[in-house]
Design a protein around this nucleic acid. Structure first.
Lengths: 112, 112
DNA sequence: CCGATACGCAACCATTGGTTGCTCAATTGG
DNA sequence: CCAATTGAGCAACCAATGGTTGCGTATCGG
């Protein structure tokens, strides 16, 4: 029930560029800093830094081959991240619902 | 299907301090920069800046009263944010599932 | 009225995301 | 085999952001 998400994981997927990178890596089945930067509005170096962040939290992993460094999404890890995201959403949902029920109860008690 | 979340909303809830602030505001039914800073590891001024961010994206709103400035969560807006969070999660889930199905199909075709 | 308190503003510092410029290594082709 | 190309990895630098301290101001309560 913790709803205490791993802050590193959150900030990793909290960045819009990194979310788009994950999307691209998923839909294209992996890529390098160079190929990704061709589809993003930032330079290769910026992409490389973001890949470093994603790598450190385990959302992607790299396989060097020749002079290339190909990155792929760690699907299990991303699934875990998605689960944590939705658990935070669920926690807030629960609080909102509880507040709503209390408010309704007060409302009824004031009427009846 | 967009899965294109409002980046401002994301970065608003992407910050761990701001998430804890939302939690506190929900569970305590509102608060001021001063009361929140008492429960957080940052100064009142830092909290005030975060409240400004949350206010600008509409997740909280303030009602000045005397020398206090009381903030409360805009529940409808937070519900919207939660919905967007879960839609991103759902989009990634869908991609992960599709990839999984394709991988399984390839696996089967290679065996049979 | 005067002290305490809650807020806002400004200056300043560290971290982070971005850039450019360079070097280095591996691939490719004459 | 040697040279040009190309992908990656630094390093320096800049802007924005999250944090701090310090100070001014307004409101509340004795």
């Amino acid at each position: 029930m913790s709803a205490v998400i791993d802050d590193e994981l959150w900030s990793a997927v909290g960045d819009p560029i990194r979310r788009r990178m994950l999307d691209l890596l998923l839909t294209e089945g992996g890529g390098t800093a160079t190929t990704l930067s061709g589809r993003l509005p930032v330079t290769r170096q910026a992409v490389a830094k973001h890949l470093g962040v994603l790598d450190r939290v385990g959302l992607v992993h790299a396989t060097p081959s020749g002079r290339e460094r190909r990155y792929e999404v760690d699907e299990a890890q991303l699934a875990r991240a998605v689960a944590q995201l939705s658990s935070v959403g669920a926690a807030w949902d629960a609080r909102l619902n509880r507040i709503k029920r209390i408010a309704e109860a007060i409302h009824r008690s004031q009427e009846g």
